[in-house]
């Protein structure tokens, strides 16, 4: 159906986003000319994005045939998963553990990175983060996991 499946899918996704924005915006009052309501701009933008998305999808049905780009899951999971893990650990397990976990997980994003090097880097960067951010810049964060005797 699409000659350029990439643009076709992006167009459809954008159109769906626009439609969603439009659907949610119907709950916001549009107001009057002298007192525009919170729904005025969202309505216009939602409709515009819907239109642009459909145009893009329509354009993808013509033109030269192009292959679909490759999406690699490994870096995606390692990097973004690392960020989420860091957020989850930060307040409960402390900066040291959270930083090291982030570095370890992120290092797994690249095939063939030795785990020994990653482990050393995790510890070094964890200590560095504590030194710079907690001691240097005075960021308010626990360093150690909660419940340790010296806390």
């Amino acid at each position: 159906m699409f000659h350029d499946p990439r643009d076709g899918l992006v167009g459809l996704a954008l159109a769906a986003t626009g439609a969603g924005a439009l659907w949610i915006a119907r709950r916001y009052p549009a107001g009057t000319a002298a007192d525009l309501g919170p729904g005025f701009l969202p309505g216009i933008l939602g409709a515009l994005l819907l239109l642009l998305g459909l145009l893009m999808a329509a354009g993808a049905c013509r033109g030269p045939r192009t292959p679909f780009p490759v999406l690699q899951l490994r870096p995606l999971l390692a990097v973004l998963g690392g960020v989420v893990l860091f957020g989850l650990l930060l307040r409960s397990a402390g900066l040291l553990v959270a930083s090291s976990a982030l570095v370890l997980l992120a290092s797994a994003g690249l095939r063939g990175a030795g785990w020994r090097v990653a482990l050393i880097e995790a510890v070094v960067l964890g200590v560095l983060a504590v030194a710079v951010f907690v001691h240097g810049l005075g960021l308010r964060l626990p360093v150690w996991p909660a419940g340790l005797p010296w806390n």
Partner: peptide, 13 residues
Amino acid sequence: MMLMMLTTLVPVP
């Protein structure tokens, strides 16, 4: 250098 950094981690009682 690592040792120096580690000293910054020692908790104050």
